[in-house]
Write a protein that binds this DNA or RNA. Sequence first.
DNA 1: ACAATAATAAGATAGTTGTCTAAATATCTA
DNA 2: TAGATATTTAGACAACTATCTTATTATTGT
Lengths: 90, 90
Amino acid sequence: MHDSLFRALADPTRRRILELLSERDRTAGEIAEQFPVAFASVSHHLGVLKAAGLVATEREGQFIRYRLNTTVFQEVVRYFMKSFSGGNDA
Amino acid sequence: MHDSLFRALADPTRRRILELLSERDRTAGEIAEQFPVAFASVSHHLGVLKAAGLVATEREGQFIRYRLNTTVFQEVVRYFMKSFSGGNDA
DNA sequence: ACAATAATAAGATAGTTGTCTAAATATCTA
DNA sequence: TAGATATTTAGACAACTATCTTATTATTGT
């Protein structure tokens, strides 16, 4: 479990970004317009999420499309269940 | 999902504390001696974990015994599975 | 090539956090 | 009550982070 992963999850704006991406893929601009902070700030958050492996990107012309990396989430769930849960499924 | 929960999980020392507690309950001193930082620093981490609801305490004479609150971990797993996972069990 | 749009990067700053030492609180035992 | 042990709290400080504005890079269309 990398440290960057949990640090990335520790910010509420980033968790909200992940929730948005769980609905559907979105461009950086579509994500940014959902938040009352500067465009560049959201871009910073996207960079943190990408560095943590939680999202992946693909350029589409002028746009950059973000999508969830669901594999990493499954690893997080596995970590919690293995290390901490009472052994029951959730 | 409280913010304090994810912030608490974001520190590697605190995650290690949780792993120790998943083996068995421990006093603050037993926990602190596992780390190369000052006793007071570990106490600070324990306070963060407690504020996040991840651990609970019980005084036993001079000692204070810490234990995992497994319910909260199950809630975290549920949050991840509901919000982000591909829907498969881990 | 030039202007417009999309997005990131750079640099600055305020707020948060992890760590330390020293002081305080709580319990036990003599 | 006094001293010893266990733990937390207080205060200070360096490192990190979220945010902002400005500058830069990449792509599109004319």
